[in-house]
Simulated assay, not measured.
Amino acid sequence: MATFIHDHPLAPPQPPGIGLLTPLRRWINGIEVTNRRFAHLICRLIPCCCPFERDLSLLGRTIHIPALCKLNPVYDELVGLRFRALSYLADRCGEDVTPYLC
């Protein structure tokens, strides 16, 4: 069973109250990175920066697409998980993590 790390200094702040996504946020924050292959997988799957907002022209109309990080309600938790994976690779495994940086 995963140990939750709400009080960890790298954990994103928890929103006040209990929302529908609070269990998911706690679960993501509780994931410990202790495996090199898992850390590499996390770094490949979670992008290093938020995709930019865009304006698309489609059939003469302009459609505004907001930044995707604003649409993802667990974005902060995923970024924290990616940071923990990068830290594990750099600190514990001694690997060069520059390929995963923006």
Rank of each mutant, 00 (worst) to 15 (best):
residue 88 Y to W: 02
residue 53 E to A: 07
residue 58 L to Q: 06
residue 19 G to S: 11
residue 9 P to I: 10
residue 3 T to Y: 07
residue 50 C to S: 06
residue 99 P to M: 07
residue 21 L to A: 13
residue 31 I to N: 01
residue 61 R to V: 09
residue 31 I to V: 14
residue 53 E to S: 14
residue 35 N to K: 01
residue 19 G to L: 01
residue 18 I to Y: 05
residue 85 A to V: 03
residue 16 P to L: 13
residue 75 Y to P: 06
residue 83 F to M: 12
residue 27 W to V: 07
residue 24 L to C: 11
residue 30 G to W: 03
residue 42 I to W: 01
residue 61 R to K: 13
residue 2 A to W: 05
residue 101 L to V: 02
residue 18 I to H: 10
residue 18 I to P: 00
residue 41 L to S: 12
residue 44 R to I: 13
residue 42 I to R: 08
residue 79 V to M: 14
residue 16 P to A: 09
residue 45 L to Y: 12
residue 101 L to S: 11
residue 1 M to W: 04
residue 102 C to E: 08
residue 61 R to I: 06
residue 70 K to C: 06
residue 9 P to K: 03
residue 63 I to P: 10
residue 60 G to N: 03
residue 72 N to T: 11
residue 100 Y to M: 01
residue 68 L to W: 04
residue 5 I to K: 06
residue 72 N to K: 00
residue 49 C to L: 15
residue 31 I to R: 00
residue 57 S to C: 08
residue 20 L to K: 03
residue 1 M to N: 15
residue 51 P to Q: 13
residue 14 Q to G: 03
residue 10 L to N: 12
residue 69 C to I: 00
residue 43 C to H: 02
residue 24 L to R: 07
residue 81 L to W: 02
residue 20 L to W: 04
residue 37 R to T: 05
residue 33 V to L: 01
residue 21 L to W: 05
residue 50 C to A: 13
residue 55 D to V: 14
residue 90 A to H: 01
residue 23 P to C: 03
residue 83 F to Q: 10
residue 8 H to T: 01
residue 98 T to D: 11
residue 59 L to G: 13
residue 73 P to D: 15
residue 2 A to F: 12
residue 15 P to W: 08
residue 22 T to D: 01
residue 48 C to P: 04
residue 89 L to T: 12
residue 3 T to N: 05
residue 5 I to D: 04
residue 42 I to V: 14
residue 46 I to Q: 00
residue 74 V to M: 12
residue 73 P to F: 06
residue 1 M to A: 05
residue 14 Q to I: 09
residue 56 L to G: 05
residue 22 T to M: 06
residue 27 W to S: 11
residue 71 L to G: 15
residue 20 L to A: 08
residue 92 R to V: 15
residue 53 E to K: 15
residue 66 P to M: 12
residue 40 H to V: 00
residue 61 R to L: 09
residue 20 L to N: 04
residue 87 S to N: 13
residue 59 L to C: 13
residue 78 L to D: 00
residue 20 L to R: 03
residue 36 R to T: 01
residue 73 P to L: 12
residue 19 G to C: 02
residue 30 G to F: 11
residue 102 C to I: 14
residue 47 P to Q: 08
residue 9 P to W: 05
residue 41 L to A: 12
residue 67 A to M: 10
residue 35 N to H: 04
residue 59 L to E: 14
residue 71 L to M: 07
residue 64 H to A: 07
residue 10 L to R: 14
residue 72 N to Q: 08
residue 92 R to Y: 10
residue 27 W to C: 07
residue 101 L to C: 05
residue 92 R to K: 01
residue 12 P to Y: 01
residue 27 W to A: 15
residue 6 H to Y: 06
residue 96 D to G: 02
residue 64 H to I: 03
residue 82 R to T: 02
residue 56 L to Q: 07
residue 58 L to K: 06
residue 98 T to F: 03
residue 38 F to N: 07
residue 81 L to G: 04
residue 12 P to A: 02
residue 6 H to L: 11
residue 37 R to Y: 03
residue 92 R to F: 07
residue 56 L to H: 10
residue 33 V to A: 00
residue 13 P to N: 09
residue 92 R to D: 14
residue 62 T to S: 11
residue 26 R to W: 12
residue 55 D to H: 04
